[in-house]
């Protein structure tokens, strides 16, 4: 089947290579993430990175999320 396919043009190998690359890559990433990356504590820590720091501000007090409304 492949021989017949390729006999039409030597360029036809490129889409096949592309597809194989992407399939292997995608399956690899999926398998790794759902089988290998299972340390829930570590993952939770990474997901919480945007909330880790206690900020202090000079000048008017910084406001927190959701605190919006007409000033004055």
């Amino acid at each position: 089947m492949f021989q017949e396919f390729f006999s039409r043009s030597s360029q036809l190998v490129w889409p096949l290579i592309g597809l194989l690359l992407s399939v292997v890559f995608f399956v690899g990433v999926l398998a790794y993430v759902f089988l290998g990356l299972r340390d829930r504590g570590h993952i939770g820590q990474l997901a919480a990175l945007p909330f880790e720091t206690e900020e202090t501000s000079e000048g008017p007090a910084a406001i927190t999320a959701g605190q919006i409304g007409r000033a004055s």
Binding site: G59, P60, I63, Q67, G69, R70, A71
Partner: peptide, 15 residues
């Protein structure tokens, strides 16, 4: 809308 109040230390002028 999220940044301006925080960058200027105030509340949004009008919700």
């Amino acid at each position: 809308y999220w940044l301006f109040p925080r960058l200027w230390g105030t509340k949004l002028y009008s919700t």
